[in-house]
């Protein structure tokens, strides 16, 4: 055993505390409920601590997010009722984002702040949202996302492309609603 029990706890706590904002943020973006996110983040942390002996020492954040994602997929999503419409045709043809929006990014993004981005992200179906969160917010590689979500890399690529496309569309709707962009400007 490399660590004493106290050393193991200290090593885990040091690393877990550093990545916990990412863990909690991801939990919140997945569940969209603070209460559920607290439960999910706590449970993921406890499971990570119990499995810390099996951590290979490479990328702690990716490992924690993998535990969190698997926990969410296995447990929390089972509770959700109704069809997961976002995943029905995830391997379909991905349209280019620029073709659907002739809107200059400056117009679209200059007025967007954190809350609007989070709101738009929340409108993206969960599988696609997860890919965008792990890639663009948490900075994980495609391989790490594939490991975390238990899907092939090809599926990660298509989910990411479609997720970003949906996110852009949601941001456009926000811009139109708030008056930053006139309706029909993107058509």
């Amino acid at each position: 055993m490399l660590f004493g029990k106290r050393d193991k706890r200290d090593a885990f706590e040091r690393q877990a505390e550093r990545v916990f904002p990412s863990v909690f943020g991801t939990a919140l973006r997945l569940t969209r409920s603070r209460e559920e996110a607290e439960d999910l983040a706590q449970e993921a942390t406890i499971r990570a601590y119990e499995a810390f002996d099996r951590f290979d020492g490479s990328n702690f954040k990716a490992w924690m997010l993998r535990i969190l994602t698997n926990l969410y997929i296995n447990k929390y999503r089972q509770r959700q009722r109704g069809p997961q419409f976002g995943s029905l045709d995830e391997d379909g043809v991905t349209e280019p984002m620029s073709a659907e929006a002739e809107v200059p990014d400056r117009v679209l993004f200059d007025n967007a702040v954190g809350a609007e981005i989070e709101e738009a992200l929340g409108k993206v179906p969960v599988d696609f949202r997860l890919a965008v969160i792990l890639s663009d917010i948490e900075g994980m590689s495609y391989q790490e996302i594939a490991d975390a979500t238990n899907v092939p890399i090809g599926t990660v690529r298509s989910r990411l492309a479609r997720g970003r496309s949906m996110l852009r569309k949601a941001l456009e709707e926000y811009a139109i609603r708030e008056g930053y962009l006139k309706k029909g400007a993107s058509e």
Partner: peptide
């Protein structure tokens, strides 16, 4: 298209909200 992707990626990466989680 690439510019569009990069802009969106930068927007999400830089402007997402941070959430208070010290109590958790």
């Amino acid at each position: 298209e690439l510019d569009c992707i990069k802009n969106l990626k930068a927007l999400v990466s830089e402007h997402h909200e941070t959430h208070e989680c010290r109590n958790v």
